[in-house]
Design a protein around this nucleic acid. Structure first.
Length: 273
DNA sequence: AATCTCTCCAACCGCAGTGGT
DNA sequence: CACCACTGCGGTTGGAGAGAT
């Protein structure tokens, strides 16, 4: 890789995006559609590299993105899928179409990794080596994470998002602007992460309905095959095939093998945290 | 009140993969 | 086949804010 990074060019701005830049980017994409990122800075006058524009769009401005407040259901899915797939965030994100890979990755690194670590510590202190069931799960998680990180890509879906949904970009932008206005007026409320944590604690402590939904076919096998920007014919075909046969062998395995394990993990996480 | 430390997340970086010529 | 341009992905970092001292 001999050539210099695109963002090293003189005049290329770095750092947080301003609402004004967001509006420019969103209006441009509404008009021309996502893609051809190379031409975006040139045509919009944004002092950002193409890569930065693409990332800003896919991780923040894209319609249909849900931010913050991971539900216990989503949390369980992430734990589950990470154990299965390893750190393949894009693949994991394809099962949570409202979340971006970056968001999931951040959430894993900042919240879930710690929980898993605590859980493992708890297992180590509570469980003797002869307790084959729990120890087996522990080892299985680690083994799967390891093996998946060393294997090639599986047949998981990887869709972009629909170009027909640009209209809701304005919602995103208005939310964004609202947030920006709020943050500048410095009102004091519960932090989103605190609220999230609080809500999760309540959810964990009340019932296991979310866990049941986690392992149900409706909520796991067939969720949102919607994340499609380029949405090529092949992808559409693949998607329609999946809609006809929503559960792949991999997913079946996931459900059969790990449903009980995730439930166990979530129960333990309730006990530990 | 001031300073330090920690946490979180948006954004960046580098590499890999893919398609076009 | 080789090269180049472009995109996608995962790891990492830096700054802002919150909490602790």
């Amino acid at each position: 890789m001999g050539r210099p990074p695109c963002c090293d060019k003189v005049g290329i701005k770095k750092g947080p995006w301003t609402p004004e830049e967001d509006i420019i980017l969103v209006s441009y994409i509404q008009e021309h559609g996502p893609g051809n990122w190379r031409s975006v800075p040139t045509n919009t006058g944004l002092m950002r590299c193409s890569k930065s524009c693409r990332l800003r769009w896919t991780n923040y401005l894209r319609p249909g993105i849900k931010r913050g407040n991971f539900t216990p259901h989503e949390e369980g899915m992430i734990i589950h899928l990470q154990a299965l797939l390893g750190n393949r965030w894009a693949a994991i994100a394809s099962y949570l179409p409202q979340r971006t890979d970056n968001d999931i990755k951040n959430y894993w690194n900042t919240h879930l990794k710690k929980k898993i670590k605590k859980y493992q510590t708890a297992i180590d202190s509570y469980v003797t080596p002869s307790d084959s069931a729990a120890t087996g799960f522990h080892q299985e998680l680690a083994m799967r994470a390891y093996s998946s990180s060393t294997t090639t890509h599986s047949t998981l879906p990887s869709f972009g998002h629909s170009s027909s949904t640009y209209a809701s970009s304005t919602e995103n932008i208005s939310k964004l602007l609202e947030g920006w206005m709020r943050s500048s007026s410095k009102t004091t409320t519960i932090k989103p992460e605190q609220q999230d944590h609080h809500q999760r604690s309540i959810a964990f402590n009340t019932n296991n309905e979310e866990l049941q939904s986690l392992v149900s076919i409706e909520n796991f096998g067939c969720i949102g095959w919607e994340k499609s920007s380029a949405d090529s014919e092949e992808m559409s075909k693949e998607r329609s095939e999946r809609q006809q046969a929503p559960i792949s062998l991999l997913e079946k395995w996931l459900l059969d093998e790990a449903a009980g394990q995730v439930e166990g993990l979530m129960e333990l996480s309730d006990a530990v945290f």
